[in-house]
């Protein structure tokens, strides 16, 4: 919401006074809450109904059976580890990139700004395909995948690094967007003052900007973790869905669905919802600036 300027305020006050009495005002308040509440409820109720439908579809016995399967336990483990790792990797990139985009005007800035958003707008399967092509595109006799597997001893495609890379590509883009908005909302004067007091630009960033952006970092971590959890398309294409190896919960749902185990797929989906709620709750409780 924009602030009311000095010129607008008297006009606004006059407008409001002429159009509403105190009783009329209360009535219009009820109308306001009915409209906003109704619109808000349409979305909240839809999500609640989706969850209720899932719960009604999967029996408790089935849920217990599914989550005790070794494949699903391995999938939960890899999901928690990979989502957490990609969140940290994402923050390491998102904080400096978001800061640069928010604070500085430099040649080619708009190109970088656009490129950063591409993983957000690109269809997930295309992103997976692009990763696959990147690692297997021959440059003469040289291929990125061969270099990693021969020189670094680490096969990427259809292995765990592909899971991390696929999750990182998407979740980092969301984290960058969040951090950029965070730094844009922070007043740069505090950093300028720090620099007049003898801080270098790096010190101003580390000692002033970063501590001030902690709430944004928690928000970025939350959204990055959640995006990594739900990532499916790029993992399917680039990492494959090998049970107990590259299987994460989103691909577990696909595997169960593909073998006709609909109740198992729903049970895994509910597990994902539960995990996401627990992690988001932890971040809200322990993050700076606790929200209600």
């Amino acid at each position: 919401m924009t602030k009311t300027t000095g010129q607008e305020a008297p006009r606004l006050a006059a407008d409001c006074n002429t159009k509403s009495t105190s009783v009329g005002s209360r009535r219009s308040d009820i109308g306001f809450f009915l409209v906003t509440g109704g619109l808000s409820a349409s979305f909240v109720v839809l999500i609640a109904l989706l969850l209720l439908a899932d719960i009604a579809f999967a029996s408790f016995g089935q849920f217990a059976n599914v989550i005790s399967k070794p494949e699903i336990l391995a999938s939960v483990r890899l999901t928690l580890l990979s989502c957490s790792a990609t969140t940290i990797m994402g923050l390491w990139v998102a904080v400096p990139l978001g800061y640069l985009l928010a604070r500085f005007r430099f040649p080619g800035r708009w190109v970088i700004d656009t490129l950063v958003d591409i993983p957000i707008v690109l269809p997930p399967l295309v992103l997976g395909l692009s990763l696959l092509i990147l690692f297997h595109l021959p440059f003469g006799h040289w291929k990125l995948e061969h270099w990693f597997s021969n020189e670094a001893g680490l096969a990427i495609t259809y292995n765990w690094p592909a899971v991390l890379l696929a999750q990182f590509t998407v979740s980092c883009a969301f984290a960058v967007r969040t951090m950029r908005v965070t730094f844009e909302q922070l007043d740069p004067r505090a950093e300028d003052v720090a620099r007049t007091l003898g801080c270098t630009r790096g010190q101003a960033f580390l000692q002033v900007a970063m501590p001030q952006s902690r709430r944004g970092m928690v928000a970025a971590a939350t959204i990055a973790w959640a995006r990594a959890l739900g990532e499916f398309g790029p993992i399917l294409v680039f990492a494959g869905v090998t049970r107990m190896r590259t299987e994460v919960l989103s691909t577990s749902v696909f595997l169960e669905l593909s073998t006709g185990q609909l109740d198992a797929a729903v049970a895994v989906s509910l597990l994902m919802v539960g995990l996401a709620m627990v992690v988001l709750l932890i971040l809200k409780v322990f993050g700076p600036g606790k929200s209600q």
Partner: peptide
């Protein structure tokens, strides 16, 4: 934390 997490993922595989 990142090093530990990647180590655990590699060990998982």
């Amino acid at each position: 934390c990142l090093a530990i997490l990647i180590g655990l993922i590699a060990n998982h595989a």
